[in-house]
């Protein structure tokens, strides 16, 4: 009898300040201030473009990881998959230079191969998790080893290099840009935007969060839990492929050490951004901020002489732990 009907109900989340929600953005602002104080060069367009460009690879992968983690899964294989995809892409393009000549058609075929490979790898991970009923951690730990070993085998333990003619053609995809903003940054922004729309505005996104919260409730709510989980892994594979397409023209090579630890960077970005590792709540923009922060720390340490760059890992680690401490505040209030 008190408030049995509330007309203006929950159109928007309440205006109250939510530290957990805004925490990552505040931290980012703090880092930017810090960077400016440390070295004025920090704010130069060239430096910012450089930071964002380097964020693009793990950032794009992290957008995919946000989906997988939101459904309550995890994908450890992304770094190895990136290396393997890069390797295959290079081999295919090198093989095609002979018959087709060095030009855009070859690049396009290479890109298609990368995307196809990413989708298939995501499908394999997803099927093993859903149909095989194996924990995502175990499945992707396995595929992580497999992909890493495959690229090493492909490179025969050394480095796979892209044909130099092809490099010249492909170069602009990484080094070029539009309106002074490098291509990878554009692509990163587009991927994040599309990811946010999918996660927040579509049924699929809602289902991801529901499954991560409680998959039994999801099943009883007529959601095809396996299909949604599978799609999340496929999406992750696609994101890896996009990252690789941008990465290959950077160095024009792939080896056993390509993409090492990318999976951890991606997961760290997701967690710093406020997505819960146990699933149920995903934040795309948080992930983007998390990814940028990880690169910024490195960048700032490079610009100052005060702290050794070798301490980068320690600072990143501390930030991850603080982020999770903040999250636990929300979780225990349930």
């Amino acid at each position: 009898m008190t408030q049995s009907s509330m007309p203006e109900l929950a159109r928007k989340p309440s205006a109250g300040f939510d530290l957990k929600l805004w925490g990552p953005f505040l931290a980012l602002a703090g880092l930017i201030v810090l960077g400016t104080l440390v070295n004025p060069v920090f704010l130069s367009p060239a430096n910012l473009a450089n930071v964002l460009t380097r964020t693009a690879f793990t950032g794009i992968i992290a957008v995919g990881a946000t989906f997988v983690i939101t459904t309550g899964g995890i994908d450890l294989s992304v770094g190895s998959l990136a290396a393997f995809t890069a390797g295959v892409m290079i081999v295919v393009m090198n093989a095609l230079v002979g018959p087709m000549g060095a030009g855009w058609p070859v690049v396009l075929v290479g890109m298609l191969v990368a995307v196809g490979l990413g989708l298939v790898a995501g499908l394999v991970n997803g099927l093993l998790v859903t149909k095989g009923r194996i924990e995502a951690f175990i499945v992707t730990l396995g595929t992580m080893g497999i992909f890493r070993s495959l690229v090493t085998y492909l490179a025969d333990g050394g480095t796979l290099s892209l044909n130099s003619g092809m490099r010249a053609v492909y170069r602009p995809v990484y080094y070029g840009g539009l309106f002074g903003i490098p291509t990878p940054v554009w692509v990163f922004a587009a991927v994040a935007l599309i990811g946010a729309v999918i996660l927040y505005r579509t049924r699929f996104g809602r289902y991801c969060a529901a499954i991560g919260s409680n998959d039994e409730v999801a099943r009883y709510s007529a959601i095809d839990v396996d299909r949604v989980r599978l799609l999340a892994f496929v999406l992750q594979g696609l994101c890896v492929a996009i990252a690789v397409v941008l990465y290959v023209p950077r160095l024009g090579s792939a080896s056993a050490t390509t993409g090492v630890l990318w999976e951890l960077e991606a997961i760290a970005a997701v967690i710093i951004g406020g997505t819960m590792l146990k699933g149920g709540h995903g934040r795309i923009w948080g992930t983007v901020v998390g990814a940028v922060m990880l690169t910024l720390i490195d960048n700032i340490l490079n610009l100052t002489g005060a702290i050794s760059v070798y301490l980068n890992g320690a600072i990143q680690g501390a930030i991850i732990i603080v982020a999770v401490l903040l999250q636990r505040g929300t979780a225990s209030k349930r």
Binding site: A10, R206, A209, A210, S213, N214, E216, V217, Y220, S221
Partner: peptide
């Protein structure tokens, strides 16, 4: 256990099915 997502708001719970 099977009916509602207790960690979420009313709106997504209402329309999930």
């Amino acid at each position: 256990g099977k009916g509602l997502l207790v960690g979420k708001g009313l709106r997504p719970n209402l329309t999930l099915l």
